[in-house]
Design a protein around this nucleic acid. Structure first.
Lengths: 161, 161
DNA sequence: TTAGGTGCAAATTCTTTGCACCCTG
DNA sequence: CAGGGTGCAAAGAATTTGCACCTAA
């Protein structure tokens, strides 16, 4: 649904090569789970992947889907949509602003940028719907995490005092 | 922890006015829950808000925190970090690309933009950590949702057939 | 006063884990 | 053949809901 057969094949070949290189087994399930995500432009959740794969591999289980998705994310073959696999987080800053997200610890740091604020969505996007706001998400690894320190517990949540 | 007292006061006054305007009650709990989010730059999750508020309102309950956070989000006084309150979703498109997110149904539509791909994070951000990728998130309401159609079940998850 | 709001506890939903059997390499 | 991978079922987080009491307006 969406991704061209050529592109899909290309992604699957890349996936197989990456699995071999990583030294993990290329099982039927893994291939079909990857195909399900790579063949869709809907950014399916685990449940949706499960439903899709089950039509081709009726015995597949939901927990294998979860394990495989996170495995593939660790290998860099997939990405996730939100900042992380964390609980939902809230923001009271209603001014236009942007985010730096640490892929390691989940830290989210706001920043302002006149340049980014001035961006306008492409015409193509305006055709999809009406736009209310535009936010740039910069992903990377924060100083704390790349500095080799243990990051014990400090998962960006802050919280307490 | 971060937000200046002045800015915090400003946000809280705005919050109170908005509550009055919306005709909802200004309870002690709501004020403290809002204060907790508005006073932090950490983008706390529900649990972290709960811990913080409990120090000032020991009887507050976690479910009130949840109810209040979503209420405030509905009123436009808070925003959430990820696309929505949905299950985690995956993406096999490893090329640089950007997202349109429908705030109503959760649809996420990819798009490409040479202009956005060329963006560079401000120096200020580079000081926070090493950058691996930059993605523009455009939020709005998709055609389907604003078109007044029912959107029955189609929460962007696509999935099966 | 009184309707909306809160706290409690139980229910849901999403995701992870332990273990015995199976299949790729 | 051997060890990683899978399916099952049960556990564990995160979040929501029903109901009786409480409180802001």
């Amino acid at each position: 649904m969406g991704v061209s057969p050529n592109e899909l094949d290309r992604r699957i070949e890349h996936f197989k090569a990456a699995c071999r290189e990583a030294g993990i087994k290329l099982t039927h399930q893994r291939i079909e789970i990857f195909r399900e995500v790579a063949g869709s432009e809907e950014h399916p959740g685990a449940e949706a992947v499960f439903r899709g794969v089950r039509e081709r591999v009726p015995t597949v289980s939901l927990d294998t889907v979860y394990r495989t998705l996170w495995l593939l994310e660790d290998l860099g073959l997939l990405t996730t949509l939100g900042p992380r696999r964390d609980p939902m987080r809230f923001d009271a800053n209603l001014e236009s602003h942007h985010h730096f997200v640490c892929e390691r610890c989940g830290l989210v740091r706001d920043f302002e940028s006149a340049e980014f604020d001035a961006l306008d969505a492409p015409r193509e996007v305006k055709r999809v719907g009406s736009i209310s706001r535009l936010c740039v998400e910069v992903r990377g690894v924060c100083r704390e995490c790349s500095g080799g320190c243990s990051v014990s517990g400090a998962r960006g949540e802050g919280g307490g005092e």
